[in-house]
Design a protein around this nucleic acid. Structure first.
Length: 577
RNA sequence: CGGGGCGUAGCGCAGCUGGUAGCGCACCUGUCUUGGGAACAGGAUGUCGCAGGUUCAAAUCCUGUCGCUCCGACCA
């Protein structure tokens, strides 16, 4: 490729829209351009990266036995109504009508379409297991698109769906995808971590997230310092290590705390440790099944003052469909006291306490009376022992339930997510297959996603410096750039051309920067764009028959004889990752 | 959805105590230059987001509207 013909324009200044380094650098390097909020054009340079990521994904998926297809992007409402998600998916689903008034949506994911397709095609267990995937543009009308390709509304995703006759088969399929995903991210040259995750709105029984480690990541990841356990903060299980310290219980006493509402304010006012001042939150858990009926239920959740309530854990404990903090109005109606002075003593709602409070003595809690708290409160003496459970977010220093090690907190970017769906979709959409006994049973499914653009962006997030991008070789737009430093000198131009030709002949992924620009401009652009290797062909070096090869990642430069240049480039490339 | 900021040339911005638009980079022509974003000379580029209103006169003031963006609950 000749750069003069390549439709590329680098920017010296960062467009105001960009906040994180991957976004800034992709814009400056002329790889993407914004069309509307969360919607981007991929320019040739950016597209090459996207295609390389796609091809790595494709290769790993094919090796794992998955088969590529392409599903429709515009999807009829009926399919979504059948699964129940037409009403549940929410505003992220972009809906519209055709000329006949029929309702459609742009596919944000394809469980419905694929389930419908497979159930109409596969009739016998003999046709299973089956794993189908596609690489396609998705649309999710995100609340807040940001960070360029990191969180677009229109984005390219690889999604795969597995179909098995039973749980055992589904687990094998899941494991295959798990392994394939590891190979994908390794092949892309990324540092990543596999994390236990909550399955969220896609639903299903268990799931893992693949996180690329980066300080700018939007997700907090808890990982154990001594074993391999790691999990999303949402999901991380906290070991119950609360011990009885043998503190003698004191007699409780009500104190006035006018105008003090947060645990921190009360702790400071009374001069006690924040750990002794639990906070009481009223949580509304939706769709709790009781006596065969499903209803919303209000409960009091109490965690230590220095901890955070984890709504997902509350939801799971109560078996609800969702959970959120109750509105202030609902709280007053239910317990007769506003938020800020709540506590377990005389609480009208069922009380759930975090494990960390199991043996806590002499606590300071709200009196359920506005402006009052109670000191020296103890379970048993002052309130009935509540249900204790793991109800909070993990924090660094917590103990790992697997091995007893200590938790650490890192940040990551979620680039892949795999779900074991079970029969969630096949059952609701009545997608069945005949088993060995001739009985119709629902498919046992899994779904598996990789954000292609996000993977590319996270590679930049992980590999850049003040000059620009440092692409891992596997997904660099080109592996090598050849720069004729003096385009007005025939010797230089010819020498560069011939090295370029030799590299092409050797199968290198090479571009020649033949633009009639000054040497400095081309060097700076090559560093911004982040080609792993650069061959500088200039008058000075050529006087001694030499050219320079520089490695973007390390900054090292070696001078080699011009006629050996191509060979040397291939040798260095082979050692790069 | 809640809270802040911004819409002026391809990009970054100034102009906003009303008088009909400017700077840097990029772009075009020429000279010169070519191993780290050269210099000089000349040139082209705008429905000042949109719609109303106030005024002799609006980028500037008022109202509305649309879009973008940043901070908090979701996801590849």
């Amino acid at each position: 490729m000749r750069q003069s013909r390549f439709f590329i324009q680098t920017l010296r200044e960062v467009p105001a829209e960009a906040e994180v380094s991957s976004h800034k650098l992709m814009l400056r390097a002329g790889m993407i351009k914004r069309v509307a909020a969360g919607i981007y054009n991929y320019q040739p340079l950016g597209l090459r990266v996207i295609r390389k990521v796609e091809n790595i994904v494709r290769k790993c998926m094919n090796e794992a036995g998955a088969v590529e297809l392409l599903l429709s992007m515009v999807q009829p409402a009926e399919l979504w109504q059948a699964s129940g998600r037409w009403t549940h998916y929410g505003k992220e689903l972009l809906r519209f009508k055709d000329r006949g008034g029929r309702e459609f949506c742009l596919g944000p994911t394809h469980e419905e379409v694929i389930t419908d397709l497979v159930s109409g095609t596969v009739n016998s267990y003999k046709q299973l297991p089956l794993n189908l995937y596609q690489i396609q543009t998705k649309f999710r009308d995100e609340v807040r698109p940001r960070f360029g390709l990191m969180r677009g509304r229109e984005f390219i995703m690889k999604d795969a769906y597995s179909f098995d006759i039973d749980e055992e088969g589904a687990e094998k399929s899941y494991k295959k995808m798990y392994d394939a995903y590891c190979r994908v991210f390794e092949s892309c040259g990324l540092r990543y971590k596999v994390v236990d995750a909550d399955s969220g709105s896609i639903g299903g029984s268990f799931s893992h997230e693949f996180m690329v480690l980066a300080d700018t990541g939007e997700d907090a990841v808890i990982s154990c310092s001594s074993c391999s356990y790691s999990a999303n903060v949402e999901k991380a299980v906290v070991a119950d290590t609360c011990k009885d310290e043998g503190e003698a219980p004191l007699k409780s006493e009500e104190v006035a705390t006018p105008g003090l509402h947060t645990a921190a304010e009360v702790a400071e006012f009374l001069g006690v440790d924040l750990k002794k001042v639990p906070k009481t939150m009223i949580v509304k858990v939706e769709g709790v099944k009781e006596n065969g009926k499903s209803a919303d239920k209000l409960v009091a959740v109490i965690v230590r003052g220095d901890h955070e309530v984890n709504l997902a854990k509350v939801k799971n404990l109560l078996g609800g469909a969702g959970a959120d903090f109750a509105e202030p109005g609902e709280v007053i109606k239910a317990v007769g006291c506003p938020v800020g002075s709540l506590g377990p003593v005389g609480m009208k709602l069922p009380v759930y306490m975090d494990n960390a409070l199991k043996h806590a003595k002499n606590l300071v809690v709200g009196a359920n009376r506005d402006g009052y708290h109670i000191k020296n409160v103890n379970a048993g003496a002052d309130y009935e022992a509540p249900v204790y459970a793991d109800l909070r977010n993990a924090v660094p220093g917590d103990i790992c339930p697997e091995c007893g090690g200590v938790y650490e907190l890192t940040r990551g970017i979620e680039v892949g997510h795999i779900f074991k769906l079970g029969t969630k979709y096949s059952a609701s959409m009545d997608a069945k297959v005949l088993d060995k006994n001739g009985r119709a049973v629902p498919f046992v499914m899994g779904s598996y996603g990789i954000g292609i653009g996000r993977t590319a962006a996270s590679a930049i997030e992980q590999n850049n410096d003040e000059k620009g991008i440092i692409w891992p070789k596997a997904i660099a737009p080109f592996e090598v750039v050849v720069i004729p430093m003096n385009t007005n000198e025939d010797d230089v131009v010819n020498a560069a051309d011939s090295i370029y030709g030799e590299l092409l002949a050797k199968g290198a992924d090479v571009i020649i920067d033949d633009r009639n620009e000054r040497a400095g401009v081309k060097m700076i652009d090559s560093e911004l764009i982040g080609y792993p290797l650069r061959v500088s062909v200039g008058r000075k070096g050529l006087a001694e028959g030499k050219v320079d090869i520089s490695v973007r990642g390390t900054g090292e430069t070696v001078s080699v004889p011009a006629e050996k240049a191509a060979e040397e480039v291939m040798r260095i490339l082979a050692g790069l990752n």
